[in-house]
Computed example of a mutant assay.
Amino acid sequence: MSISSRLAPHQRVFAAFAIYAFALGNLFPRLPAIKDAMGVQEGALGLALIGTSTGTLISLTLASQIIARLGGHRTALFILLPCMALFFAIAVNATGPVALYFLLIPAGLTMGAIEVIVNVEADRTEAALGRRIMNRAHAFWSFGFFGAGIFGAVMAQLGVPPAIHLAGILPLTILVVWLLLSDFQPGPKRSTETADDTPAIARPTMGIMVLVGVSLSAMLLEGASIDWSAIYMSSVFDAAPFLGGLAVATTALTQAITRYNADRIVDRHAPDTVARIMQVGIMLGIVVVFVAPSPAIALLGFALIGAGTSAIFPLAMSAAAQRSDRAAAVNVAALAQFSFVIFLLGPPLLGFVAEHAGLRWTFGIGLPLVVLSFALSGALGSKPIGDR
């Protein structure tokens, strides 16, 4: 009996989130080495990273068609997860920012489709179980990213070239997909999902745009921490390579722990209240990172940002999937599409802020956006889930 056959359906969903994050996350602890190898400043590196954003946004827009062409959710996961690892392994061989931009586009294309699959499957499984698992599913994404951060930190400290490191992730991804997802089956569709009149492009409604605003600051600060925390530690404190990777891992770990417990918290407390408390945590984390006099204090700031960003996007995803105006996949794709503009396009552009104003401002500039998200969080609902 395989490992996958012993897993419950929701556990296979959790595994899919973790594998996705691990295959993706190994790139980011190696960004300082990639930047140094190309001999570029933060602005040029940021523009190169937009290649991932370009591919992801195209894929999110056309996710339903891409998934259908690949044969549905199960087959698509088996194809897309190893392909994403392969494309990142190829991209890190780029010798300049222009080449890196174009080589990252295929990786982004796979990311967008995977993002829709795992979130829709989490929502369907949540409905079948009759209890919330969305935050816990995203916790496993963060656990996977934490593992990638630690593994990448060790590889960086040992001086393993990024090309060899990322090439090794491909067979590891294939093995883990086979071990944990070989018995994966798509969950039953929600009653609110329909196949009729599904638009080819996931255009946002006004309700979805409000949810984009709710997740705005969390997505930007989570993305900034992923893209720039390792380079922040290296440039601001001249820290060892391991500490750069540890900054990435610290954000992911506190995010994972908080997300893992968030479903129980949201069952007892109003989602908008939970979101606003977490937004206060983001504010505190930004301030700590901005004024940190040492690497240890900076890690505390990244820990606060990780915890603060933990549940806001999953709560918005749940709210989008439960809207009855369109199919869940369309609403999820629409929210993900515009949220990922912030998550994937915003942080790379912060490279220009880092280059001209300093790396501390890549985080400080997010404070006004936290205030905006705080004001819009009422869209998540004002009653505990257990009272509905």
Rank of each mutant, 00 (worst) to 15 (best):
P186A: 05
N135P: 00
I174T: 10
G43F: 08
R124L: 12
T250D: 07
S59I: 05
K189I: 06
E42A: 11
L180Q: 01
G55V: 03
T75L: 13
V288I: 15
G149Y: 03
A327V: 12
F143A: 04
G168L: 10
A296I: 15
I58G: 06
A333P: 13
A21S: 10
I312S: 03
A18M: 11
I114C: 03
F22P: 15
G72Y: 05
S191D: 12
V353K: 00
D238S: 10
L81P: 03
T56L: 08
V210E: 04
A247E: 10
L104D: 01
S64Q: 13
S339A: 13
A240D: 12
S382H: 03
S191T: 13
A303R: 01
I169K: 00
R323H: 09
T309N: 09
G366Q: 05
G43M: 06
L60A: 11
R388G: 13
G358Y: 12
A127C: 11
P384Q: 05
P188A: 15
G71Y: 09
L335G: 05
A230P: 01
L158I: 04
F151L: 14
V92T: 12
I117E: 05
A357I: 15
I365C: 10
L380A: 11
T254L: 07
S373W: 04
M206L: 10
I133F: 04
T362K: 02
F146Y: 06
N26C: 14
D263T: 06
P204C: 15
P29A: 13
T362H: 05
S382T: 14
S4M: 10
A68E: 14
I174S: 09
L344S: 08
I105R: 01
T75D: 08
T198Y: 09
A240S: 15
S339L: 07
G72P: 10
L100N: 05
I150L: 07
N93P: 10
R323S: 14
G168H: 08
R323A: 15
A48N: 04
T362Y: 07
